[in-house]
Design a protein around this nucleic acid. Structure first.
Lengths: 216, 216
DNA sequence: ACCTGAACACCGTTCAAGT
DNA sequence: ACCTGAACACCGTTCAAGT
């Protein structure tokens, strides 16, 4: 009855990406092959080439999607704590670790060492994620946790910490429950440090103006 | 003149590892193949199997070496600043970033997501690195930066931050000079936070006793 | 013990050709 | 435009056989 020919009339790209995400989640990066994806999509092994020049292009697209999904989760987590900034920060960090635990191979891919600059797609997804983090961080100014001029640098330090904790979990250096304790400590240390006179003096002595035109 | 036959009489393993390190450094993980290593070592493609059951075993051995090299550099960096704890901490963090910049693919490998627990070799190398970090961190107690009971948790948070900053550099999210600024900020925030009453109160309310028997 | 050589079942990538 | 089918040059892994 059904003519199955036009099934991939324009949406092969999305089908491949969806399946790639599943394979990455279930069997990891090394198990991800273009030929297998093509096979499961019911097209020849050369067909994906029209949508992804090579394997790296597919991985870039996966990373891009990953950043979009992660940004959404972080935003939702912060929005779930509209009254208490400290709790919002903690919820955001926890959501990050949840993502790391749920999608270790994807997070790996998102922060994999790259010889060349990120693709435009990845760059804009990363920028969007950073903006999400900065808008969460901006709540700290209203809450009196730190000065407006410090939002960018403070948020970058905290997000690097959280990313590092995530890497410790995905690489099995620490357990999930240890990571929760670490996140607790990191947030406490961060909020404590940001409100000290010593930080204030340091930040005033070392102003940063480089983030705006970052590769980020 | 020279009989080249007995060249690999017991040291093929070391030859393969050395060459693998070079390939990883020059052309990245995806370019690393057992067959090529065997070819360049002048043995058949099946020979490496006696020393590494599969490709993952080789990668584990590389990661293990990486942790040993990194620990050595961190120790040296801290030892280069025997008088000022803050400078020692900063030098250690900088050395970490230098390593990340010099060996991005190796650092990636060291913190790659793993489905199963790390091998014994990797585990002991990681433990040794942690001990190195803790002994550097212990200087902070003598310097009056924080309490002895807090060394482990504080050092773990700081090292996660530095690892996260390293990941931002190797994945080309930020430039090397931005990473130096971030390291500066992280150390300032860390030392400031650790000496606050708010941290003291938080740490006393949330004692941690789980690190000793960590998978770390 | 340590290594060889052939074999198996995969890969990514390219390209002329089809519709 | 989008896909096919064959071809090329690789892989990792296994295993009987050699020394």
């Amino acid at each position: 009855m059904a003519d199955r020919k036009p099934f991939h009339h324009g949406n092969l790209r999305a089908v491949l990406l969806d399946q790639a995400q599943v394979v990455l989640h279930e069997r990891g990066l090394s198990a991800l092959s273009l030929r297998e994806l093509a096979r499961e999509a019911g097209v020849s092994h050369a067909a994906p080439r029209k949508h992804f020049i090579d394997r790296d292009a597919l991985l870039d697209a996966l990373a891009e999607r990953g950043f979009a999904r992660l940004a959404e989760r972080l935003r939702d987590a912060a929005a779930g704590e509209p009254d208490d900034f400290r709790r919002a920060l903690h919820a955001t960090a926890s959501a990050y670790i949840d993502f790391a635990v749920a999608e270790p191979a994807l997070l790996d891919l998102m922060f994999a060492a790259k010889a060349d600059s990120p693709s435009d797609g990845v760059r804009s997804a990363v920028t969007h994620q950073l903006e999400t983090l900065l808008s969460i961080g901006a709540r700290g100014v209203a809450a009196g946790a730190y000065a407006e001029a410090d939002v960018e640098r403070l948020i970058l330090v905290l997000s690097a910490s959280v990313q590092g904790i995530g890497a410790l979990v995905t690489s099995r250096r620490i357990t999930v429950s240890q990571s929760e304790a670490l996140i607790d400590d990191a947030v406490a240390l961060f909020l404590g440090g940001a409100s000290t006179d010593s930080w204030r003096a340091f930040a005033d002595e070392h102003p940063r103006q480089i983030w705006k035109d970052a590769a980020l």
